[in-house]
Design a protein around this nucleic acid. Structure first.
Length: 567
RNA sequence: GCGCCCGUAGCUCAGCAGGAUAGAGCAACGGACUUCUAAUCCGUAGGUCAGAGGUUCGAAUCCCCUCGGGCGCGCCA
């Protein structure tokens, strides 16, 4: 357990003991002890921890909360704790004031654990799958995919650190109507490029990339497909272009620092018969019926708005059908929990898939869908449209190239998934103080600079293991400046931030944490010199900034941004 | 029409397992580099938390309604 949780738990225990004592002595009348909590007050004047138990008990105890608070405070035993004093304030908060240096030992915990500082066992090794990006392979990835990539990758890192066995998966939508249209569009361009008439169908793809594929194909294989029958050559074109598109997605994501454990093909679900299998299963369970020549799933009986088509009149299964098979397959592969990250425009799909899982006998609560609101891209103060079909779009690769991996990943994780994200290209590109990513990286670079300086002066940090306990205490107790104390407390917050980010599936918490930690570090930097004539103080502060550097690195690793040593 | 998301400082947003006086960055204004990187810091100013009601000792936070913005409601994915 981490320092802060330990202290919190201790104080909680002592409060409960004090309350029980008061109840035994009949100064407080109560049957139950409410589920109270100890929070860190926003205002440091209210102590280091505050308990809200007195207010929660007021009703049952028929006593003013302040009175209850005072009775608990009077009975509390704070021996063997870092508590300096206890006060009751406001409506009845019990405020704990700790010895200012109570958290200082956290520095040694950080330096000992290194990159594992923050790791914890919330997940108990349970298997969890995060499926994200899953872009259509019919063209380049857009801004929404970029946001999903940054979000999903950071979330996966957080869950890994929290003790889950995480699998990152990309679902390739290489089946269905869009692939048909893809093939028709490729064919049309092929014919046009060879001087014949081609027609791109309704819902087809007009992008330049389609032409590029066919230009390349013609360069490689000439006009030999002109005389092939249309379905055969389309199949060939599709395979040819799909393979290249998928490889390109892999490359683009790699440039973005995002790697997947599994690339899962939708087509494979059809090829292995799993789609038919799941449709039959639903039939057996009596959850289907035929109408207007199509096969329907009774989604409305499982929480959906209306029933949904599984097999179209033309005999082909819908995307919905393969998605049911896909999600069944996920659970059959042994995942305890599955997280999907989808664009908000797919939200109507959530109830349907969950309904189908329920119909199949799976607990739909094991599936969590994070709906990501769409990204609005601004350039020169104007909204930049992004439609894959028009070909005039800003792609994920463009973003990485234009604003850089670090700024892009940081920007996408500055907000929760459910907020509309305005991505200001001009701001992200700017290498100035307006750009928040530099603020956090600068903190890291500054620390590296101090350590370089120290090394040049022949000052070397002792190995953590070789520092005797007494010296650790000595160093820790030397750090008493307000900015030092603030910085140390912020370091102690890190494991709790990881936990919250994991519980709420909110990577943006880590981004915010980076800003806060950097902020208190910069304040410290401006008020305290690290390298001084005082050898012990210098050592103590070197240990402190080294710990800050470690935590920054750990947080950057989650977000997938680099930790530059110089800027 | 129905459903989902959002509405907090001039701008972009934190804060939303209910807690004490609502925060940060940018923009504005005033200060700080003979000292480890000024991509920094310190200070000032800036608010009917969209609006109305309800629950509560206590509401930006939870519930209901209204308004405004976005997105869905396909035999597309």
């Amino acid at each position: 357990m981490y320092l802060k949780d330990e202290v919190r738990q201790t104080l909680k225990d002592r409060i409960i003991r004090a309350l029980k004592k008061a109840i035994d002595e009949k100064v407080i009348v109560a049957e139950t002890i409410p589920d109270f909590y100890l929070e860190v007050p926003q205002d440091p004047g209210h102590g280091d921890f505050a308990a809200n138990i007195a207010m929660l008990m007021a009703r049952e105890a028929k006593m003013p909360p302040r009175k209850i608070g005072e009775l608990i405070a009077a009975n509390i035993d704070t021996s063997d704790t870092p508590v300096d004093r206890v006060e009751v304030a406001g409506p009845g908060f019990i405020n704990f004031y700790l010895k200012p240096t109570w958290a200082n030992v956290v520095i040694f915990d950080i330096l000992t654990k290194g990159r594992d500082y923050g790791r914890q066992e919330l997940g108990g090794g349970r298997k969890i799958q995060v499926e994200f990006v899953s872009a259509n392979p019919t063209g380049p990835m857009h801004m929404g995919n970029a946001r999903g990539a940054a979000l999903g990758d950071a979330l996966s890192s957080i869950l890994k650190l929290s003790g889950y066995d995480v699998t990152k998966e990309f679902y390739i939508n290489d089946a269905g109507n869009q692939i048909e249209n893809f093939g028709l569009s490729l064919e049309a361009r092929y014919l046009e490029l060879l001087g014949q008439e081609g027609h791109i169908p309704e819902g087809g793809y007009h992008g330049e990339d389609i032409k590029d594929h066919m230009r390349n194909l013609i360069a490689e294989e000439g006009n030999r497909f002109l005389h092939m029958d249309s379905p055969s050559r389309r199949a060939y074109f599709i395979e040819y272009a799909l393979k290249k598109n998928i490889q390109r997605m892999k490359d683009d994501l790699e440039n973005f620092g995002v790697y997947f454990d599994i690339w899962f093909s939708e087509q494979s679900l059809h090829d292995t018969g799993k789609v038919n299998e799941v449709i039959n299963l639903l039939k057996q369970k009596g959850c289907t019926y035929e109408k207007d020549g199509a096969l329907w799933f009774t989604a409305s009986e499982f929480g959906g708005d209306k029933d949904e088509v599984l097999i179209r009149t033309n005999g082909l299964p819908t995307y919905f059908a393969s998605d049911i098979a896909y999600h069944k397959d996920k659970f059959d592969r042994g995942f305890d929990r599955v997280i999907d990250i989808w664009g908000a425009d797919h939200h109507g799909h959530v109830a349907r898939v969950k309904g189908a899982l329920k119909a199949l006998g799976y607990d739909p609560d094991r599936l969590t869908v994070i709906l990501m609101q769409l990204v609005r891209l601004y350039r020169n103060g104007e909204i930049a449209r992004m439609s894959k079909r028009t070909g005039r779009t800003v792609t994920l690769a463009d973003i990485v190239e234009e604003v850089g991996r670090d700024a892009a990943r940081f920007f996408f994780n500055m907000r929760g998934a459910d907020t509309h994200l305005d991505f200001d290209l001009d701001l992200a590109i700017k290498q100035s103080d307006e750009n928040p990513v530099y603020y956090v990286q600068y903190a890291h670079a500054r620390i590296c600079s101090i350590l370089r300086q120290a090394s040049e002066q022949g000052i070397s940090l002792p190995e953590i293991e070789s520092i005797p306990l007494a010296s650790k205490d000595k160093y820790a107790l030397l750090l008493t400046e307000k900015s030092e104390i603030d910085l140390i407390k912020k370091l102690a917050d890190f494991p709790g931030e990881i936990r919250l980010a994991a519980e709420n599936l909110s990577p943006y918490r880590i981004t915010n944490y980076c800003m806060e930690l950097s902020s208190v570090f910069h304040s410290f930097y401006n008020s305290c010199r690290v390298l001084t004539d005082d050898k012990d103080l210098t050592n103590a502060r070197l240990l402190l900034v080294t710990a800050v550097r470690q935590v920054l690195r750990n947080a950057f690793a989650i977000l997938g941004i680099s930790a530059p040593e110089r800027m």
